[in-house]
Design a protein around this nucleic acid. Structure first.
Lengths: 344, 344
DNA sequence: CTGAAAGCGCTAACAA
DNA sequence: TTGTTAGCGCTTTCAG
């Protein structure tokens, strides 16, 4: 990229410029700009005035190198397109608000190799901590994180061994509890609709827990329907039509997320099916975005915002007990029956 | 925050460590790690092996300071919660893919003061370019951007004067075109439902364009309903009920976004209203997420992904003509009648 | 309260 | 192809 010269190009301003204009040493200027207390009000005024007239913006790169301190927290998630993650990020941002730390996001597209790369890039900026979605990483990624010397918090999932700290829910348990609720309500011919992504470990674990309970009850999944690509109402609608045309006798549909579940619900309502009498439905996530349908879809709330907040608290050293590393927080997923599982 | 010491705490590795282990000068190690061509295959091997066994992660802070080059592009948007922005980010990421540049995101919560702050923080990391949503900024923010010496691209909106480059659509025009379509279809008692946020300038401009056309036709907005907070189907449903209970004679509802528009659509369908015969509806954005409803909501596509891509191309110097600064790209918003505006 | 000196870890520029 | 030297712009440390 050629050097970019806007109308009035100038060399970037440095502390020295502010120092000269204000007639105060660079060191003192630096103190003022960092809000350190040991500066006389008079000098402070002079310096601030000079900085303002020049439009000086400090160079954090130099500052970070000199102080060996970086007020950044790396946050690594699979995708921004999946509405689940923006909520986690919201929690992180909120909790980091006045910690002096700033989150920096990176997305992996659910690809382990890409994740390794993003982690490497992030660590090369020497952040104060890292928050990473999921427990499954390449060996190299685990090693980098483990050796980074900063707090690492793995989030969203608690089924596995964390590198350092962990904040999440058990997706196996979420799957089990949903299966138990469904069986208790009397449904027996159960279908599953979910993504094909082999790297969506959390969806996989939910299905495992779900299947375990069915099996223990002597039942197996009657039918399965997979899809590729992003989730949408349209996709859920279409998959539901497909699976029901193959197996019209199904009496329950468990979706791997609320978005396709809601699409399925729309389909069932449009078809005039008796929900939840003849057929029940459930999703996963507790997307409040989707409230507003005639019937509320049964779901499991994944505590997304709380997960983000707790993780951020650990990274910023604000968690209850003052410890920073090695914390293990498992939140309880809350099952919400909504209107699409019949009551016993 | 106390220094964090994980099980095997160690001082961070430096080039020097790799240099010593491989028996090659720091400078040459640096060359290998930056993939520069002028290194013999033999040395390259040695160095890479040493770096790998140590688990060395370069320090980009030092690198950036020395080279005066930062491969980061700052991206500033109002909110991640509004699904519109993740799509823009997707476009940016895609276009930046193999440019060697990495996007870094910041959110402003639609607050000008917060935006100023985020811009300041970002600029202090000396990014290679900035992409900022909207044309309205505080004077200080404009000044900082203008004096930064890097390419600045303002996106989403083309109704105003950019600091440097611009990629967006005219929201006034989008509003006007929708009004024209609605009038042409014969609707006359028109209500508007939108957010209260005074800082959502783009929604404001759409409404202005919309009202202008109505006025020119001798019609004025029959009723208005405002809300605060995030958009959701539930909110749209509720607002629709409210506005219609006040003015049951309305024959068209124009929503400031698709999410509340879709909520309104659900309400109307549940009530058994004749859509689009008796009452028409339209939103804004072209959220494909919402396709899958029985009727497709009329909307205007805001070209979000394309905006992101074009902006990223400008920043990375990849745009057609080789110029970097001062570009002005206005995309044409595409009106989609869907199923909720009756055909003439 | 203020200033001077040293150096953070890396790379540009030049020399060998 | 490789090495040496001199900073990048700031903060730490210590002296005044």
């Amino acid at each position: 990229m050629p050097p970019y010269l806007p109308p009035e190009a100038q060399r970037p301003l440095t502390l020295r410029d502010v120092s000269e204009l204000s007639g105060v040493s660079e060191m003192t200027v630096s103190r003022v700009l960092r809000n350190r207390a040991d500066v006389s009000p008079a000098t402070r005024e002079k310096v601030l005035a000079a900085a303002k007239t020049l439009g000086y913006v400090p160079n954090k790169i130099a500052g970070a190198l000199a102080s060996q301190r970086v007020n950044l927290v790396g946050v690594i998630i699979p995708s921004l397109a999946n509405m689940v993650f923006p909520e986690v990020l919201g929690g992180i941002s909120a909790a980091l608000e006045d910690s002096g730390l700033q989150p920096v996001f990176g997305a992996t597209d659910y690809k382990a190799e890409r994740e390794e790369n993003v982690i490497y890039e992030m660590l090369s900026w020497r952040p104060s901590g890292m928050i990473v979605a999921g427990l499954e990483h390449t060996d190299a990624a685990r090693a980098m994180l483990a050796n980074s010397g900063i707090p690492i918090v793995e989030i969203m999932d608690s089924d596995g061994e964390p590198i350092d700290s962990l904040v999440g829910i058990s997706h196996r348990r979420a799957g089990r509890e949903m299966a138990e609720a469904i069986l208790a309500a009397g449904y027996r011919k159960i279908g599953f609709l979910g993504s094909k992504m082999p790297d969506d470990h959390r969806a996989r674990k939910r299905l495992e827990g779900f299947s375990d309970v069915l099996q223990a009850a002597g039942i197996s999944l009657a039918e399965t329907e997979h899809y590729a690509g992003g989730s949408s109402l349209a996709k859920g609608r279409e998959m539901t039509q497909t699976i029901l045309s193959r197996r019209p006798d199904l009496d329950f549909l468990y979706y791997s997320n609320d978005m396709i579940g809601a699409g399925g619900l729309l389909y069932c309502l449009d078809q005039g099916f008796d929900v939840p009498g003849k057929i029940g439905l459930a999703g996963f996530n507790g997307l409040e975005l989707l409230e507003g349908f005639r019937l509320r879809l049964a779901t499991t709330d994944a505590c997304r915002r709380e997960i983000g907040m707790r993780a951020a608290e650990i990274v910023s050293g604000k968690s209850d007990d003052g410890l920073i590393g090695g914390r293990h927080i498992e939140l309880a997923p809350r099952l919400d029956f909504g209107d699409t599982i019949r009551r016993a």
